[in-house]
Amino acid sequence: MINPQQKLRTLLLVLLVALLNAGCSNTVRENPAVRSYLDARPVDLSGSWERDYSRGDDVNLQLGRLFRKLNRTSRDQRFSNRPALIISQREASSIVALAQLAEFITRPTVLTITHGENELLVEREGDYAIVCEFYDGLAHGTETQYGTEACGWLGQQFISRLGLPDGTGISHRFTISPDAQSLHVATTVSSGTAGVPFTLNRFYTRFEPLPGEANCIETLSRKRVCTLQGTSP
């Protein structure tokens, strides 16, 4: 039995949450790089991660699987008297292009993830670092004239989604294993010309980087300044 006081409290709580959500969604509407993550907690993915080649997708196999699935769907639809989904040569080329782009983007073999008080930084070899700033339940990505990157958390996953001006979309979904020793990154690429997105799964294993012999800091006037371990600059 819920007494009237509890009922009122619940109602007020629901109203408060609704108001908060309304406020956040307004912000989200104003700035496409900002997302609310009130329903999730920033998961700590920090550490050094190296590609685990024994797991994950082979791009050609994944592409074959997708084509088989699409053909099966076409066949099933033909038998069920629904309009058939015909994969044109052009669409097939578009899907192959998605696969090539996914393969290109997921090339980095080492990821270095730093989780600060208000910032998650995913450094990738040979690519820009994915940066997600988070304050008061709002995750802030990046908005530039070349593309808009939104980020956020969904349950235990960290998600980064990049929208490019030509309609290409690239999303990365990071999931850490319960023992925190393995990282799964699902990269999905989509475009306006291909009817279906293409997803490539990569796995990474945690490793401890070897301690360097030198401590280095960047300076403007003297570039990189290094001192040997145990000596003062």
Binding site: S94, A97, L98, L101, F104, I105, D166, I170
Partner: peptide
């Protein structure tokens, strides 16, 4: 929609 176009954009 080609790889070249999307890679350029990326």
């Amino acid at each position: 929609g080609s790889f070249e176009a999307m890679k350029k954009s990326y």
